[in-house]
Design a protein around this nucleic acid. Sequence first.
DNA 1: GTCTATAATAGGATAGAC
DNA 2: GTCTATCCTATTATAGAC
Lengths: 188, 188
Amino acid sequence: MPPSKVSREDVLNRLLAVFRRHGFEGASLAMIADEVGLQKASLYHLFPGGKDEMAKAVLEHVHAFMEEKVLVPLRGEGDPATRLHAMIEQVRAFYADGRLSCLFDTLSVGGGDNPFRKPIGDAMNAWMDALALVAREHGATAAVARQRAERVLVTIQGVLVVARCLDDLKVFSRGMHELPAILLPADV
Amino acid sequence: MPPSKVSREDVLNRLLAVFRRHGFEGASLAMIADEVGLQKASLYHLFPGGKDEMAKAVLEHVHAFMEEKVLVPLRGEGDPATRLHAMIEQVRAFYADGRLSCLFDTLSVGGGDNPFRKPIGDAMNAWMDALALVAREHGATAAVARQRAERVLVTIQGVLVVARCLDDLKVFSRGMHELPAILLPADV
DNA sequence: GTCTATAATAGGATAGAC
DNA sequence: GTCTATCCTATTATAGAC
């Protein structure tokens, strides 16, 4: 899509911004069109399936972004602490130091029939696996590594919600600071 | 409101069920009327301010519930561990072991102009204060107590989101199990 | 206090020109 | 590939009977 007003990458990033902020139901097409800088009909040209397809495309976009910027580094070379710190920096940037909500949170509300639950669950499981791998290399058993990986994800999601509710970004910063001690405690 | 089809308490609890599940934008009046068992016009009789007033009333209802069932016990008599366990049991019940989302989470999405942010922030701060009091009585300094209280809230919100995303209630159970070690660790 | 009926608007989606 | 104009439905909200 070279000769276009905005690149697909740009469109997806702007869609991400709307959905993570307002959730699926809260994001109207008028709002989306305004934010993306295209008319509604143009959005339907890009996403014939409508809002549903837009949200799914954003989830895939985030999944690809995570794979490249978070999961590959986590699985890569280097010592566990260095890899975890690389992830933490990406997470800080992705959530703008706690100013932005998690798409997984805002898109997972609604009934169990919610069509976004499955891709969200898959993405979170992939993240958890990559974290557990790092914990294992640090010396933890498989079971303990998984428990610590879960605590990391719980902490990230928790600080995002609490920071938003309290309107206090320091909650997010403190949470990020605690992640190394959670995943890679000194006593094995 | 004695001679009525459903008590105000019932109405508020059913409104709570809808809003915590679907969020504010995701909860339509048709859905609400259906769930509450009243027609839309009857809801407007009870809440002339419409959906906005309904959500605010639910927040007040939850705040009152928390004050009675969570905060008063936390501030009450007995040793810190006993009081914390009382809270944990209430939290387990309130979130149906992780099946139900937190209203603070679902109602806090949207811009900073969101009118629910302030009551939500007030409620979370009150909860944090009560938790910090317990930690202080266990021997922590004011600063450390506040940090631990924050970790408890982060863990609760985190496990709710992660359990929902992974569709795995055990995440919630494990989180509840860890709360005593977070607020009242053995080494002071 | 609850209802049926309806108004008024916003929402998602499409047609067809350029 | 993007636009303007439009359609249809769902949504919020109100009027007025009982």
